[in-house]
Design a protein around this nucleic acid. Sequence first.
DNA 1: CTAGGGTTAG
Length: 637
Amino acid sequence: MLHSVCLASSLSNQFLSPKLKGSIDANNVQTPTSEIPNTSLVHHFSSPLELKQAVAFLIKTNKPLSVLPLSRVASLCALTPNFPFAQQIFNCVDQQEVSVWNSCLRNLAEGPSAIDAIFLFHQMRSYNVGPDCFTCSFVLKACVVLLDLSCGRIVHAYVEKLGFQSNLVLLNALLHLYASCGAMADSMLLFDKMPQRDIVSWNIMITQLAKKGDADGAFELFSQMPDRNLRSWTAMITGFVHSGKPKEAIRLFTEMEETGLRANEVTVVAVLAACADLGALELGRRIHEYSNKSRFRRNIHISNTLIDMYIKCGCLEAAKAVFEEMKERTIVSWSAMIQGLAMHGQADEALELFNEMIKTGVKPNEVTFLGILHACSHMGLINKGREFFASMSRDYNISPQIEHYGCMVDLLSRAGLLQDAYELITNMPIKPNAVVWGSFLGGCRIQKDVEMAEEAIRQLGILDPLNDGYYIIMSNIYAEAKRWEDAARVRKLMKDRGVKKTPGWSSITIAGVTHEFVAGDDNHPQSEEIFQRWDKLLEQMRSKGYVPNTSVVLLDMEETEKEKYLYRHSEKLALVFGLMNTKPGETIRIMKNLRVCEDCHAAFKVISEIVKREIVVRDRNRFHCFKDGFCSCKDYW
DNA sequence: CTAGGGTTAG
């Protein structure tokens, strides 16, 4: 961080004049004892007082002032007009020397106070010092950090005025700046009219387009570019992941490997993130091995992403193993692990981990609390949840965001405290969004409270009228209350508004091939066998006391018809297919895009006992791990 | 002497 430039030879003569030496009375400044070679103070001072101490220390101990890092001295003085010696010190600097300004700018732009670089740049202009291309480069860097578009435009004007139009480094920095400030049109315009481009120009555009969610546009550029390096591939893979296209990300990664390029740390992180989204455990494991074999095995980003990948693939134990063997952990590692335990319904362990984290001296952030609140919500720990919610602002000065309120509403309404939840919604300082009302609606369904649900759906009709999920829940609530006309009315409303129901699907991956099932699916080549196997299983299930719960079927029809529907739910098809195509005793892993259905949940518990297998289901909210007739969610979900 | 692009938890 402190790459200060020492102009060793010239500093004592040119920079700190005898006049200055005289102006600091070394005997009146408290300095560390001279026995300690206080290199840290001499090199790393960050306040005027420390600079004063450093100068006094050097004078007192008869050391050359030339060891002081010029750029720090100058930037400190330039930025601290109240410092009594600032002007004098500053006057000793050759103010017309652009390299001195550049050194200061570089340090500031790279450090935590990029805003000072901008300030210094303006001051430099007021001293009538002409910027050169390095000045522009450093200032642009600060502009990107601060998203300071207007300063960036000033620099752009200099670039034009000073004739740097063909300097690719500067043009690329401008591309980056415009795009990251949201001025994508300016960025594209510049990109289009650039006399020439290099690989960096293309990579910037790919990254930025993908960040804006335009993965197709990014891929078009990726396909067009004349040359690609590892960063191009990585940028595009990351772009697909961020645009919710993990399959494309993995396909591209495979293609990259075929060209003979080897993934580096960043590529590995991107691919692991794709595996996490897809639940692609086998590939994830392969990448883990590859990463361990490579020299970048101790990369903290990779470990963090591995934790997330294993969690999202349902391998809590593997995630724990990665977490345990990390030598250093960041808040991301802790938060990911806590969130993972929450997703798997292990609230006690999540809270334990939180305490351990606090003991280690790591400060929680807003994401950590989201994980903790999730844990409480998934296990119905009402008082603990309330306590943590209060604690986050009181003890850690983190004000709850809309997501935290969403968690609390979920926690309260799921636990049956609909009134408390409603009060929280109406009293919260932020305008409740669709997610908040959606959580409330979900609670209403569990509590079978039609009236409250109607209030929620009114709000949701305004906040998120195109989201099919809310209509489905409402219609479900009516259906469960046997209010078929109302249920039909909601369905019609949905149709009138042109809202399409998201088709539910479940998938299972066997030997690297992912098989997807939708409800009633008879397209799979093994459909007949699946249905037969299910009928056999059903007999065993009935003898264990399984009774089909036809109330989850929304349509008004005969009971036997309902059962038929029920038995063709996508998760059941995927499970039976899995049982048929894996070895006895092997864990079955299923993914579902929606929440798992109640009847399937009951059925899976019984089946896990009959077939003596662990069945792990990842639904859109959390994991259910079925084993010996029980589910890890303890039926609270 | 000095400059530009790709990374993790919700």
